[in-house]
């Protein structure tokens, strides 16, 4: 992507994000949010993070690569176990990075 396109993209995302935040405080102050939008918003974070993580781990150059010899999915599995047991973001990153270096060396 060219720098110009990237500037356009970031400014657009910035404006849209501001409008979301200003929506009910300013634009539509006093109105209620439709129920379906309320229900949808609760699931945005898990759906987005899961789709992004799956893509990062298994999609390379637009193709799905499932390999037992790839270090990143194994490191991610270790990190997920740490996250599940500790609930700590810092511990997940620390152990996940260490696991990646170990698996890169092993595999």
């Amino acid at each position: 992507m060219t720098t110009g396109a990237l500037v356009g993209l970031l400014v657009t995302v910035g404006i849209v994000t501001f409008l979301y935040r200003y929506a009910m405080i300013g634009l539509f102050a006093g109105r209620r949010l439709p129920g379906w939008l309320h229900a949808l918003c609760r699931h945005i974070a898990p759906a987005s993070f899961a789709a992004l993580t799956a893509g990062e781990l298994f999609i390379h150059g637009g193709e799905v690569v499932l390999s037992l010899m790839a270090p990143k999915p194994w490191a991610a599995l270790v990190a997920a176990l740490v996250a599940w047991r500790t609930g700590s973001v810092l511990a997940t990153i620390g152990v996940g990075m260490a696991a990646l270096y170990c698996f890169k060396w092993l595999l």
């Binding site: 898990p46 993070f49 992004l52 993580t53 997920a80 996250a83 609930g87 973001v89 990153i93 996940g96």
Partner: peptide, 10 residues
């Protein structure tokens, strides 16, 4: 992605 994994489990 490790950050996303941590947030996901929560």
């Amino acid at each position: 992605p490790l950050t996303f994994i941590a947030l996901l489990t929560l």
